[in-house]
Design a protein around this nucleic acid. Sequence first.
DNA 1: AAGTGGTCTAGACCACAAA
DNA 2: TTGTGGTCTAGACCACTTG
Lengths: 257, 257
Amino acid sequence: MTGPVARAAGSLALHHRITADLAARIRSGDWPPGRRIPYEHELMASYGCARATVSKAVQALAAAGLVERRRRAGTFVARPRVQSAVLEIPELQAEISGRGQAYGYELISQQRRRLAPGRPDEARLRPAGAVLEVVCRHLANGAPFAVEERLISLAAAPEARSADFRLTPPGAWLLDHVAWSEAEHRIAAVAADDLTAMRLSLDPGRPCLVLRRWTWRAGEAVTFVRQTFPADAFELVARFAPGGFSQASGLPAVRPD
Amino acid sequence: MTGPVARAAGSLALHHRITADLAARIRSGDWPPGRRIPYEHELMASYGCARATVSKAVQALAAAGLVERRRRAGTFVARPRVQSAVLEIPELQAEISGRGQAYGYELISQQRRRLAPGRPDEARLRPAGAVLEVVCRHLANGAPFAVEERLISLAAAPEARSADFRLTPPGAWLLDHVAWSEAEHRIAAVAADDLTAMRLSLDPGRPCLVLRRWTWRAGEAVTFVRQTFPADAFELVARFAPGGFSQASGLPAVRPD
DNA sequence: AAGTGGTCTAGACCACAAA
DNA sequence: TTGTGGTCTAGACCACTTG
């Protein structure tokens, strides 16, 4: 019995406080992917509360995908996925291979430079910071599939200084070197400019899909990437179902085309 | 004291079973938006379990956005949002008004017809069903902003038979007449064909962003819509943050541009 | 004022996977 | 075998909001 509900200082429910505490340690990179977080009974002791309370807190992390729980083993920081299931923006290599096509990659240029504060896209990265600029090209069955222009903040990811992107696409490299993060995507249609058209073997003015993505870690911008696809080569898919609760009726067969 | 964990028949945890039960009633339209669902103590009696169990089940629905809970009032089926926060595809009227522009709407045509099984986009709707086809145009400050071609399955939404879309955009009408649903979006870039170019006051061949959306209710396709935007008029935004737990560090100022 | 949902506890049994 | 997380209970106090 009892349980006078020790109302925490911040007027925030205790289990919310615990969730936020743990999430902060994960997002900051303090607890890297794969690391085991404390057992529930340890968190009970740390926070001085019942097991149901810490359990609720950690289950919220699991529902958000930040951790994975395994019986008898413990709870571990999850490896970041490229995307949630809602907006599928796969790694291009996996996407092309999944189509049964041969994937090709070509580095076009790689250089250090300073940000151009005049460009609004770049302004979201740390102002006046040094960045690594990588321009590359993805091929499917030998045909240009996408051009990628990427900036990596060297302040946020100093390991990139010594990275070599001649063989490894920068997206794949970052997946292994940047912990959990927030991201924003912007998707637009544009007419190919002369340079892009040349790189994609298109006529200038032809429509292209442009995907821009900013990625932050702990509030600091890590990378900005702009990928340009020929209009007929790529289509983004986003599924949305409220609450993934098993529905006996079965989902529609959403696989044609 | 007791609590032998009455393992349910389906080998599914009781709170999961309850969540699925309630979600099914909501998605089927059995409980329409705004309807109050049973109080927790009523669910306790129905399922013969402790309050914590039904509470966990209903809180899962709330987390998924299917219901809204108000103290002292009860728990109510939420009105479907156009989109989750992850992929923001707002109603065009709200989007344009939000920019401080004048919104305009024009119906181009409205007619009943049968599905054309040859078109793969349409094939996802119930085969051989009768549909209402609505073509319309959205304007911002008097300039064409988007053309919309929509099919509404009359088998799934018979009320549409008597709807009048001369003044009301079909999207807004559907929001009030179709309950919770699943959706899929496909986003692509295309060159404007002659008809679309004329309707958007563009030169043929100019790039456009095309958004296609299929919506299902209880496994049955309700509507398909194809919206075409001039490339410079529209940009889709998708944010992704793992778990929206308050992070004391604060999110980056993601509002420039 | 009354009743809802929000939270917390102390204890218990269980399934399961790792050691 | 052991200990983790998964689940459930019976009871309690509280905040908030609505009638």
